[in-house]
Amino acid sequence: MSGNGNAAATAEENSPKMRVIRVGTRKSQLARIQTDSVVATLKASYPGLQFEIIAMSTTGDKILDTALSKIGEKSLFTKELEHALEKNEVDLVVHSLKDLPTVLPPGFTIGAICKRENPHDAVVFHPKFVGKTLETLPEKSVVGTSSLRRAAQLQRKFPHLEFRSIRGNLNTRLRKLDEQQEFSAIILATAGLQRMGWHNRVGQILHPEECMYAVGQGALGVEVRAKDQDILDLVGVLHDPETLLRCIAERAFLRHLEGGCSVPVAVHTAMKDGQLYLTGGVWSLDGSDSIQETMQATIHVPAQHEDGPEDDPQLVGITARNIPRGPQLAAQNLGISLANLLLSKGAKNILDVARQLNDAH
């Protein structure tokens, strides 16, 4: 009898209710805020589980004197976190989706994509230029951005401005803007500013005609071990179906173009009346040469937790077992079709030249 009692006690200790789920994140304040929001949602869904947040620095956090596009290494903000995932030191990792490459290392998958916040870019102005827009900034004003995508589009749109690289986390960039006289304004992701509670610093939100956004911008991705079915089931509740389908289309477009950090590629997606609209573009580094096109596809946005595919093969690095396969494939095909259209119009040449120029500098 006593033996059975011990077995029952052991089973209770090993039951999922007692389990601590370890969540990996970057150390920056924004990353911690984003991770806290994901953990809060998981806690609400699984009140019996405990969650421990483990923060670590990544290569991208450490190399702050070089433009991201020049470092010449993929997975700048993800490699150390993936290493911890691989060694079973954490069970899942919360990322900004735009930091996750469209091809993940073997053994990993994006197990959830959370509801997207505003994906557009924002302009934050130096205190002396508050009330201005990019259009009304004085001639030769210097605007800071760490992104080739932003610089290429904005140089084309605002030729009277000069664009220079600015690195560091959000706090560091804002301090550089406010305390030094080098920059009249800087460009940042609206979602990051909003998550930090800095709505009052948003001086201008850039519309798609001015600057399309990065693939996955404004959404959070939760990376897990691809074979860890328990954790895949656990994080599945975080999937937002519309965000998922938009981001599958965007990531398929980028992957098929073979774009990345070192080339200016941008997108804009919208879901309306059962249609998914995808606009994508590529630019030369100075913005003088560009190709942009829009395509659409009829896609039914499923309700969360309709029964999805059981075999769960990944699409552009994403596993969404609780979302039907048909809409996911339709979104992926839309991204591939748009990429093929741009490639047929000469996108590869623009991107190759951009890559060579970026590598040469």
Rank of each mutant, 00 (worst) to 15 (best):
V142H: 10
G197P: 04
R246D: 01
P106K: 14
H268R: 15
R246L: 10
A112M: 01
Q181S: 10
N88A: 10
A84H: 08
R167C: 04
C247Y: 10
P105T: 11
L97H: 01
T41Q: 07
G335W: 03
E139G: 10
F125S: 04
T78H: 05
T133M: 12
P241S: 14
A252Y: 01
V353A: 09
V90H: 06
D61H: 05
D312I: 01
A266R: 04
Q304D: 01
N200S: 09
A40H: 08
I54K: 11
P105S: 09
A360V: 15
F163S: 08
Q180P: 09
H126Y: 06
L104F: 10
D91V: 04
T35W: 05
S146R: 10
Q34K: 01
V130D: 15
A303Q: 01
T102A: 12
L42Y: 04
V215S: 14
Q34V: 06
S337V: 15
L100G: 01
R175M: 13
L85K: 03
G335F: 10
G144K: 08
T269R: 01
A214L: 03
H83K: 12
L357I: 14
H95V: 09
S37F: 11
Q296R: 13
D359K: 04
M271E: 15
V202S: 06
Q50K: 14
E52P: 07
K227E: 15
G72T: 09
L85I: 07
T136W: 14
K128S: 09
P313S: 14
D352C: 01
I323V: 11
K132P: 12
K87Q: 14
A252R: 03
V143D: 04
V23T: 03
T35D: 01
N358D: 01
M295L: 14
D352N: 06
L220E: 01
D178I: 01
I33F: 06
L177Y: 01
S147D: 06
D352Y: 14
G203T: 01
F77Y: 08
L148C: 09
P47G: 07
S75K: 15
S57D: 15
S45F: 06
L177F: 05
E223D: 07
A55N: 07
D65I: 08
P159H: 13
Q356I: 01
G144N: 01
T41E: 11
C211F: 15
I54T: 09
R149H: 06
A191I: 01
K140T: 10
L206T: 06
E139C: 14
E80I: 09
A189P: 03
T145A: 14
I336Y: 01
G131A: 12
G60N: 08
L92N: 12
Q304L: 05
Q356K: 11
M295H: 03
D289P: 15
N349T: 12
I54M: 09
F158Q: 09
I53K: 11
I231F: 01
G72I: 13
V130N: 12
Q229G: 14
R32A: 08
